[in-house]
Simulated scan of single mutants.
Amino acid sequence: MTRLDNSGLAGGAATRSEATIGKRIGMLLVPDTGLDAEIWEWCPQTVTPIITRLQVPDNCAEEFAAVDEVIGSSDVVEPATRSLFGNRMLGGTNPDIVVLNCTSASFVRGLEGEASIRTSMLRAGAPRALTTSGAVVGALTALNARKVAVGTPYDAETNQALAKFLLEAGFEVGSIPTTEIQHLDHASDNQIRAIAAAAYDKHASAMFISCAALRTRHLIQELNARYQVPVITSLQATMWAALAQVNERVAASDHVLHSLQWPGSAPLLPV
């Protein structure tokens, strides 16, 4: 199974006040994503997420794929990464890992594009780097998934790019249904349930609901039970993978990824 290239990458209960000197995860979010509270919910009390927004120029192309390419470009990713680290003038928060928390921006240019985003973050000072799409590959690998049912809020063109990415990473993917949601940050629970229902494939060994802007944490167990397969969502996979790299686990012992380690067959982020 082909996996993402990892060349050049490095790798008692506490109170929240104590967590400020514990592990830190730098999260790079797109401006229209408002999942800060859910990011905190995934973190154990020993980990602090340091959240910042990518500054996307307002003169980028209107086409969705082109916007995703801009989001994942070095011109956007590197300044956001550098903002987390100190310089000679002023200290920084200095997270242990930096994460680009956008699924489509990290799959739209395939495995090579995903690797280039991580390289940009490392070049800007990140000690380790992760993308949402890379996290999804790691999560599906940890689950030994082969055929994956995929649901998204994207248009058909973006779904094609996602299918190509997953196929390139070694997974079997059927057709991805188009269940578009115009305002992702305000997606309802029923809209997310509809994405899962459209994606369901009785022959799949896992289901993946794509888009890191969707609030899904409270729905995952329900969907697992309904479809009787592990259901992975973008933010769930991202937080599991980021925490695994700093030797922590997601704060959700009943979730399917909680006890799983980062798979040795997908060593995206060697320590």
Rank of each mutant, 00 (worst) to 15 (best):
residue 103 T to W: 01
residue 216 T to Y: 04
residue 168 E to T: 06
residue 164 K to Q: 12
residue 267 P to V: 09
residue 4 L to C: 12
residue 245 Q to P: 06
residue 252 A to Y: 10
residue 216 T to P: 02
residue 156 A to N: 12
residue 58 D to S: 11
residue 130 L to E: 07
residue 33 T to N: 14
residue 132 T to W: 02
residue 48 T to V: 08
residue 7 S to D: 13
residue 27 M to E: 03
residue 168 E to H: 08
residue 13 A to E: 14
residue 123 R to S: 15
residue 82 R to A: 00
residue 77 V to H: 03
residue 147 K to F: 07
residue 259 S to V: 11
residue 206 A to K: 06
residue 179 T to P: 04
residue 102 C to L: 04
residue 105 A to G: 09
residue 220 I to E: 12
residue 217 R to I: 10
residue 60 C to L: 07
residue 163 A to T: 09
residue 187 A to C: 10
residue 143 L to V: 04
residue 180 E to R: 10
residue 72 G to Y: 01
residue 65 A to P: 06
residue 87 N to Y: 09
residue 109 R to L: 09
residue 240 W to M: 03
residue 255 H to Y: 12
residue 189 D to H: 14
residue 85 F to M: 00
residue 158 T to Y: 03
residue 69 E to F: 08
residue 2 T to I: 13
residue 146 R to G: 13
residue 97 I to C: 00
residue 98 V to H: 00
residue 167 L to P: 05
residue 69 E to N: 11
residue 14 A to P: 06
residue 87 N to S: 10
residue 34 G to A: 04
residue 100 L to I: 03
residue 162 L to E: 07
residue 227 Y to E: 05
residue 125 G to E: 05
residue 142 A to G: 04
residue 191 Q to A: 15
residue 25 I to C: 00
residue 161 A to E: 09
residue 24 R to E: 00
residue 121 M to S: 07
residue 192 I to G: 03
residue 148 V to M: 09
residue 124 A to R: 12
residue 58 D to A: 11
residue 175 S to E: 14
residue 102 C to F: 03
residue 16 R to K: 14
residue 139 A to P: 00
residue 96 D to G: 13
residue 75 D to S: 13
residue 129 A to Q: 07
residue 61 A to D: 15
residue 60 C to Q: 08
residue 155 D to T: 08
residue 62 E to D: 15
residue 210 S to Q: 07
residue 74 S to Q: 12
residue 187 A to L: 08
residue 266 A to N: 02
residue 23 K to L: 05
residue 131 T to C: 02
residue 48 T to E: 06
residue 35 L to H: 05
residue 53 R to K: 12
residue 164 K to S: 13
residue 231 V to I: 05
residue 132 T to S: 15
residue 211 C to S: 08
residue 77 V to R: 02
residue 191 Q to S: 13
residue 61 A to H: 14
residue 228 Q to S: 14
residue 193 R to M: 13
residue 46 T to I: 07
residue 173 V to Y: 01
residue 59 N to Q: 10
residue 57 P to V: 09
residue 202 K to Q: 13
residue 260 L to Y: 05
residue 99 V to Q: 01
residue 115 A to Y: 01
residue 128 R to K: 15
residue 219 L to A: 08
residue 150 V to F: 05
residue 35 L to G: 08
residue 12 G to L: 15
residue 33 T to K: 05
residue 68 D to P: 02
residue 178 T to E: 14
residue 115 A to C: 05
residue 163 A to R: 10
residue 61 A to N: 15
residue 212 A to S: 14
residue 195 I to T: 01
residue 118 R to D: 03
residue 50 I to S: 02
residue 268 L to A: 02
residue 81 T to R: 00
residue 216 T to G: 08
residue 86 G to M: 03
residue 158 T to K: 09
residue 95 P to T: 00
residue 65 A to L: 14
residue 47 V to C: 04
residue 207 M to V: 05
residue 245 Q to S: 15
